[in-house]
Design a protein around this nucleic acid. Structure first.
Lengths: 345, 345
DNA sequence: ATTAGCACTCGAGGGGCGAGAGTGCTAACA
DNA sequence: TGTTAGCACTCTCGCCCCTCGAGTGCTAAT
């Protein structure tokens, strides 16, 4: 595999990304390697095909790069120039402006990703079990219900509805809030779940309060322990030429709606340590319905060490350099927001 | 327009809704009006075509109902039997179980609508300017930020981030919360906006607090005054046979993303008083891109008299009876939730 | 007033054909 | 020995043409 072959391969990949049409030898000779004749390129391409880097849809069409070609392209050939600073700053600003509900942050991130790339985006948010608590507040809502607002040290807010004894008025709830805050500041949500039970044992034993606390503990478990996935920009797959017919797009769409399956996929990827971004090309995804798609994933960190993932799903022929840069960028910004601005930058 | 013509028209509409294929005279003679020959039906259909109720895509195809036909069908012919009670109860239960953030209620409603119907759904939520306040709470988040949680008398929660003087600690905020609550319970958000300024004048004049209150008042204006639209199940339009090709679907999709335009449409409709549900068939929508779609809308009430709308967007050939029932149902349930369970049932 | 019969029309689907794109191979060339 | 020009070959795409079948409108019979 000499230098010229590599340049030809790169040309084929880039032209195909651009045009979505099989690339012929003449095109390459004219647009990419002016000093080599099409005949020579034909010979080289013939070799490249034998090596599994490309194939012809039919004998008199140009070549289409294979997954193997994209792989090599992403790993070696791609010119991963940095994103212009402007966009970079814009993204960071966008996030840093808003301290907010976790759900909003996730939704916004997904939105930004699909807006920037015009592809489908996904955001995996790991369970918040080890975010650290700054304060806890019980806000009375109706007779026996209260809103538990948990502010984490990063300024991220989680809230959930809980049952409380209906004997508790606003002041009582406030007192309990203070007590809870005092006790749990700096603890992670997971730790709180355990301590809550001890607390219930040692506290003045109003059975209603106890039950409320038990319920609260359960609820926190349920809402915070499990990882969630958000997908955005789904309709963008209609822009891929490969999915012009709804019939073709349907299987992919249903995969995108199957959060379980996506989660499984992401989990499988995440164990693979190493780089901060990863690309899964076509069959590499292990999802048959997505053999014409690639998935680019980036990690981000939540609190101390917990990892989430954001990703872009596009056609195998997507502009990897641009997409990966966007992911890195947004991933960094997100890490920054979710760790309370205490690290990075 | 005799009885038989009506029955034929009804048959054409219903068969077309079912099959999406032009309906021929023979089909009707066999499936719907066994005691009349196809030749007779041909004559009648010829008349119906002249009256503008149907047309032929080409001379040797069956007939396709026109917007006018659907109109008549919806207004008169349709058998709008009641939905089985089971589903009815399920929907109501679904909503009543959860007292929650307004955003969640809206999102859930949209979700339920598109899940039930397999069409695109929309939920218009009017500004909450005249929801009545039950309590107000300021929850400290970071040094100079607090979360203002507003609980309305229906148990619906609105919250928003506000700046506060950084001299204010938890206790001070609590005190302010109590004061605000005392002052504003029973008032609408709109009234509060005005009273806030008076309050600022009469209260102990800590300039920081004043500024905070001013900001809060502005923010409430911004977030609560404007109506919002949520669209869900967009990808369902790919199930319409008329939008099998992505190319066809694109214009409709972009309309669905243009909230401004949807809002304009809904506003125009809403002024039309009268029935609780309304159907706009094809060109009646006034949106050229949607000439093959119908929009069914139902109203619901928020608080005392404010009106929102929920809707289904489907192909003109949608099962109106079912869709309208679903809308009525969900609309009622929503009204119930958003008026605090104080009316209806 | 209804119906059977029939000629007619038009779209869908399939086969044949020419044009064009792109290849592989061969032979000539540096 | 590597590169290139030339050429025959292959295959798709778009086109036309044809047939088939569905469904009609009209006419004449009941």
């Amino acid at each position: 595999m000499n230098e010229r072959k590599r340049r030809i391969l790169q040309a084929v990949v880039e032209d195909y990304i651009l045009t979505a049409m099989p690339v012929g030898s003449r095109t390459i000779s004219r647009k990419y390697l002016r000093d080599v004749s099409s005949a020579t390129i034909r010979n080289e391409m013939s070799d490249l095909e034998e090596l599994g880097y490309m194939m012809q849809p039919h004998v008199s069409a140009g070549r289409v790069p294979s997954a193997k070609a994209y792989r090599l392209y992403v790993d070696i050939l791609m010119d991963s120039g940095l994103t212009p600073i402007k966009e970079d700053e814009a993204a960071k600003d966008y996030f840093l402006q808003r301290v907010s509900h976790l759900e909003d942050v996730v939704a916004s991130t997904a939105q930004v990703l699909s807006d920037f790339t015009h592809y489908v985006s996904l955001v995996m948010m790991p369970g918040q079990a080890n975010l650290r608590i700054a304060t806890l507040h019980l806000v009375p809502v109706s007779r026996a219900m209260a809103l538990l607002v948990i502010v984490t040290d990063g300024g991220i807010i989680r809230d959930t509805m809980v049952h409380v004894a209906d004997s508790l008025d606003t002041d009582a709830l406030y007192a309990i809030s203070r007590m809870l805050t005092e006790r749990f500041t700096g603890k992670t949500l997971k730790e709180v779940r355990q301590k809550l039970r001890e607390f219930a044992a040692s506290a003045p034993a109003d059975p209603q309060v106890l039950q409320g606390i038990a319920e609260l503990s359960d609820q926190m478990d349920r809402e915070n322990a499990t990882d969630t996935i958000t997908v955005s920009g789904t309709h963008n797959i209609l822009n891929f030429p490969e999915y012009q017919e709804a019939e073709k797009a349907r299987p992919v769409l249903s995969v995108l709606e199957d959060r379980e399956r996506l989660m499984q996929f992401i989990k499988a990827v995440d164990t693979r340590d190493g780089a901060d971004v990863a690309v899964h090309i076509g069959p590499e995804t292990g999802i048959p319905e997505m053999e014409d798609c690639s998935v680019a994933l980036a990690e981000y960190t939540v609190g101390q060490g917990h990892r989430g993932a954001i990703g872009i799903i596009g056609p195998t022929r997507m502009p990897y350099a641009r997409v990966l840069n966007t992911l890195r960028l947004v991933g960094d910004a997100l890490s920054l927001v979710l760790t309370g601005g205490k690290q990075a930058e």
